[in-house]
């Protein structure tokens, strides 16, 4: 009986997955173990990014094409702070998140009055603007020379060097982001976002201030993106303006669409499938067809749109499942 209840609870599934992930570095995978770990770290990083982006198009229903701009801002904040001031990771992460939130608010406050496609164009322009600034402001970002030699993060005086250490670090970040996102989702704020997505006029008439909640969504999403960027800079130890091009935004958006707009489980599943897929294809495809992996990527998405347009874990189903759990909770 108890087991049945556990099985239904998504938290149980999630905990067992985390347990598996923690065990992972110690599985006997031989020489390729580090390679797999690195791919998985990337996948978890994209999970975080997708969870952050999900707040804007998934929860609030606004198409955001400029997410990578905040990712870049976070990465450069982290890189510059650690090169010039040698700050600790625990200071850099909140600072990067704050910087992202600041730019999110500055971009969002005047432009969130636009609707639909117009807003998407503005965000697209913003991400291009960030790349241009990173490329041209040599005094700050060293421009196209990139920013090499970012010192690795250290925890309690112990610098992180091994792949498994970074893997654990990103898992920790994922847990924090997941906690934030789930708490927001089941709160007054999350409900206001959903209301805006479902019907703006009805939401307004229920007392939801559209601008305020849209800007909040945008700022929180931006700060999560910036935090992802901050980790990326510390992990990769080199950042370059070309890493934050428009394509990244589209990729993260694809993860959400693939997994299911607005559903947290779907978003994570999308990242977990699509990001390693690219590496798997790299190994499977013959040398010459190496770049055809993006073609296959596109094919997967097209097939997905044909057979499951609402994504792997559709929002409505997640919602229905949540409601079912709530019913059981109230009746017990």
């Amino acid at each position: 009986m108890r087991w049945q209840l556990y099985k239904k609870d998504p938290r149980f599934i999630f905990l067992s997955l985390i347990f598996l992930a923690v065990l992972l570095p110690w599985l006997p995978l031989g020489a390729s173990s580090n390679y797999i770990l690195r791919i998985l770290t990337t996948a978890v990083l994209y999970m975080i990014l997708a969870l952050g982006l999900n707040i804007v198009p998934g929860f609030t229903g606004l198409l955001d094409l400029g997410y990578v701009g905040f990712y870049g801002i976070g990465a450069y904040t982290s890189g510059l702070l650690s090169i010039h001031y040698d700050l600790s990771l625990w200071v850099i992460l909140p600072l990067a998140a704050l910087n992202g939130a600041l730019w999110g608010t500055l971009l969002g406050a005047p432009t969130l009055r636009l609707t639909g496609d117009y807003f998407a164009i503005v965000t697209f322009g913003f991400s291009e603007l960030v790349v241009l600034l990173l490329r041209n402001e040599l005094w700050l970002t060293r421009g196209p020379m990139g920013l090499p030699g970012i010192p690795p993060p250290s925890i309690f005086g112990h610098p992180l060097t091994h792949d498994w250490e970074f893997f654990y670090l990103i898992l920790l970040l994922l847990m924090i982001v997941l906690l934030v996102v789930t708490r927001l989702q089941d709160s007054r704020l999350g409900r206001a976002w959903f209301a805006i997505r479902e019907d703006e006029i009805a939401a307004q008439c229920c007392g939801v201030n559209l601008i305020r909640y849209k800007v909040t969504a945008f700022a929180i999403s931006a700060s999560i993106g910036a935090m992802g960027g901050a980790f990326y800079a510390k992990w990769f130890k080199f950042i370059h303006p070309d890493m934050f091009k428009f394509w990244e935004s589209i990729l993260i958006l694809c993860l959400i669409v693939f997994g299911g707009m607005g559903s947290i489980a779907g978003t994570m599943l999308g990242a977990l499938i699509l990001i390693p897929l690219s590496e798997v294809l790299r190994a499977v495809l013959p040398q010459g067809l190496f770049n055809a992996r993006y073609l296959i990527y596109g094919l997967v998405l097209v097939l997905m749109m044909r057979w499951r347009p609402e994504g792997l874990v559709p929002f409505e189903r997640a919602q229905a499942k949540k409601a079912k759990l709530a019913r059981e909770r109230l009746e017990i």
């Binding site: 409900r191 959903f194 209301a195 479902e198 939401a203 929002f315 409505e316 919602q319 409601a323 709530a326």
Partner: peptide, 9 residues
Amino acid sequence: LFFNLSVLD
């Protein structure tokens, strides 16, 4: 209504 949300929500 907010059709994709539960009645309670």
